[in-house]
Nucleic acid binder design. Structure first.
Lengths: 205, 205
DNA sequence: GATTTTTTGGACTTGCCGGTCCAAAAAAGT
DNA sequence: ACTTTTTTGGACCGGCAAGTCCAAAAAATC
């Protein structure tokens, strides 16, 4: 906890500039690789080759090996998820804004196609506590944004006040996640669109 | 296609009674095992031990090895999914019927907890054509049942006719899948409930 | 510029797991 | 009863991939 030595996120004690660069290169190279290719059974040696590093470097920067590295990549990808929905997600204050947000979500996942980098990572890392923490944090933030959007609309009198903002926000999260899941297995975004559109219709009342 | 020899689903040519029993024992034992335990990295040797069989038996009944066996288990589990929702899912002809169905879905997944056997299988088998076919078939049937329920309600004048039954049914599928996905990572059914309840509210108009 | 720390290369170990193989037991067919 | 087919046991193989280790290069520190 309060050890005398400053510990970074990664558990490595003190990285030089070069070291930090290498670490970042590994994360981003791995992320790009997992984003592009079939992620099932990606090996450390693949990542080593892609990022032009050696085995010892990987274990130097991620002492706990594969799991630690993949978690770092998962965090990296989780950040992208919300970023890609901005600025729309942060300002759901009018119906056109909701439409723009809807379009950005659909577009993002349509472009992504069957590959859900985050889902793939999660499947690999499985259900370790760390993995759950990453997903939970992401979903919580996401849902909070949506809930705030609903509340703002209610405050502006554009959505009926009786509606349970948190509940509907949770339904949005479920619908989007499920839509993406279906997309991964069918390659079609129709379910994602149906879920989001139906829920927006519901907001409109 | 029309070969002179009768071929079974499994590709094995002719099984005796005992053989069929063994094959079934393997599938059901594997299914139970995958349902109960952490499915990440389940090995053929685990299944061999659990089902009291030998390596040669597994490859005798599932010549293509792991993938074929896991697909068989996935089919087995997929059947259970819809069965568990019957008879409610087949007769969504009144509001109380929708409520009963809702409760059965929530109860089923609450009982299942974090373990989604089908999801786990899919993560393992990954994105082979066979795996996609299993999920697609399941989701299609599921959605068809829901759509029929909506149409029946519309015919009875209980749901406004303007509503796009197929679209909303797709939203249900997405919401349920997403709710289960969230359940798997958080252990809570609130998202599943929120999704189904919100969509039923939407049907009520 | 000497020393200490960090970074890097890559060979090597280790264990695991999917899949093969053959021969024996059991069952079915005649 | 004999033959043929199916079923079963389990030893074995081969490959792969995570992780270890040590020494050398590079950088930082003094």
């Amino acid at each position: 906890m309060d050890s005398p030595v400053q510990k970074t996120y990664s558990g490595v004690v003190a990285l030089t500039t070069k070291g930090r660069a290498t670490r970042q290169r590994i994360i981003e190279g791995a992320a790009a690789y997992l984003r592009a290719d079939e992620p099932a059974g990606v090996t450390l040696d693949d990542i080593r080759a892609i990022t032009g590093t050696s085995k010892s470097q990987i274990f130097h920067y991620f002492p706990d090996g594969k799991e630690e590295l993949f978690l770092a990549v998962a965090r990296h990808e989780a950040d992208r998820v919300l970023d890609d929905q901005q600025p729309h997600l942060g300002a759901l204050t009018s119906w056109p804004a909701w439409e723009r947000w809807r379009d950005s979500v659909v577009a993002r996942y349509r472009a992504q196609g069957r590959h859900c980098p985050l889902g793939a990572l999660m499947a690999q890392v499985g259900s370790t506590p760390g993995a759950r923490e990453v997903t939970s944090a992401l979903l919580n933030q996401w849902q909070a944004h949506i809930r705030k959007g609903i509340c703002d609309m209610q405050a502006a009198g554009l959505i009926r006040a009786g509606l349970d903002a948190d509940r509907v926000a949770a339904a949005f999260i479920a619908g989007i996640q499920g839509g993406v899941l279906v997309l991964m297995s069918t390659g079609s975004v129709t379910h994602l669109e149906a879920a989001v559109d139906t829920l927006v219709d519901h907001l409109r009342g």
